[in-house]
Amino acid sequence: MQIDVNGKAFEVEVEPEMPLLWVLRDELGITGPKYGCGIAQCGACTVHVDGFVVRSCQLAVRDLGNRKVTTIEGLGSPEALHAVQAAWIEHQVAQCGYCQSGQIMQAASFLKTNPNPSDEQIDAVMSSNLCRCGTYPRIRSAVKAAAKKLQEG
């Protein structure tokens, strides 16, 4: 079957029930999305599907259809970082870093639907992505900074 990831079309021969995360990592070598729990409890595998956040460990590739997948690799580029990525660096959010791809993808999607979130709204959304290092205060700061930057254009 054919899937669209980060603007490129890929042909993959996999079991239709294979989770998207497996396809991304093991078949396509796109390793930004991480395997954390495998049961939608941690958010490390978060990607965008047609712009909406999805835990890629929970989406069978057969159910992807012709929707477009974006991973952290397709969110920005080293030369032109997404505002959330830039804020993550500016606020030095990452500690061990394992969950951060999912955190950034979650935040980037969230700011599209809520460009000026309150602290409570940020907590409501970002607490669904687990960070065992406890970087949540810096995550909140970075999300607010990214929101401001995006609003300023």
Binding site: E17, G38, I39, A40, Q41, T46, F52, V53, V54, R55, Q58, L59, A60, R62, D63, F110, T113, N114, Q121, A124, V125, S128
Partner: peptide, 30 residues
């Protein structure tokens, strides 16, 4: 969850003919 996080982020929508999609304990039902 439109105001914060969509239920479907984790409770993804499965194909109708995929009968054992919820076999894994503790995973988000679909």
């Amino acid at each position: 969850g439109a105001e914060t996080l969509l239920c479907g982020t984790c409770h993804t929508t499965k194909s109708e003919d995929w009968d054992n999609a919820n076999a894994t304990p503790h995973a988000a039902p679909r």
